[in-house]
Amino acid sequence: MDPISIIEGRVSDLPRDDVDTDQIIPARFMKRVERTGFGEFLFHDAKEAPDWNVEVGNPILTTGANFGSGSSREHAPWALEDAGFRAIIAVSLADIFASNCTKVGLLPIVLPEEQVRAVAAAGDARIDLDAQTVTAAGEAYRFEIDPDTKHRLLNGLDDIGLTLNDEAAITAYEERRAASTFPGPSSLSLPPETSLSTTPVA
């Protein structure tokens, strides 16, 4: 993941609430086994609506409440990112979606409705992650972000690598659990698969 510090440029506006991940990318386009190439399916069906006028290709998207609700598909942030978006400024964001965004270098920002509208109206904005500000039409709006997430995004750090630094703590936890009265179920102790058919393909 590339580090993020400043995101600057044109703003696309999608002024509605509850844009779910099925609208961001319909399920039938989730069949790729690669991480790339989802951008062309962004808003695939939603954009057929007569009043649809969201420009794709800008770095910033402004939208309403509960953006990204529904499925946990990371394909939604992948599609947004692949289409060129770098930040989503919303009135509120669905939990899993917001978390997924931070894994793909897409900055999720929540601002009060009037401020989101002001950014959309300005048409251009500059986001400074380190200062936690969105500047549009000469006004600067401050946003909140979890300090660890901010640190990770600013430095483009790999989450897994960071967690593996805690290897000793993980192993200690596992040993404690294994010795407890309830170590938890094991999928390997289920009867092995016998019925996976090996029928030759016609």
């Binding site: 946990s72 598909r73 990371e74 942030p77 899993i96 978390s99 997924n100 894994k103 793909v104 989450d159 897994i160 967690t163 593996l164 993980i170």
Partner: peptide
């Protein structure tokens, strides 16, 4: 529910 990057994270750690 988690996203795919987190799936990878849980598989690894």
């Amino acid at each position: 529910g988690i996203g795919t990057s987190e799936v990878e994270h849980v598989l690894a750690t």
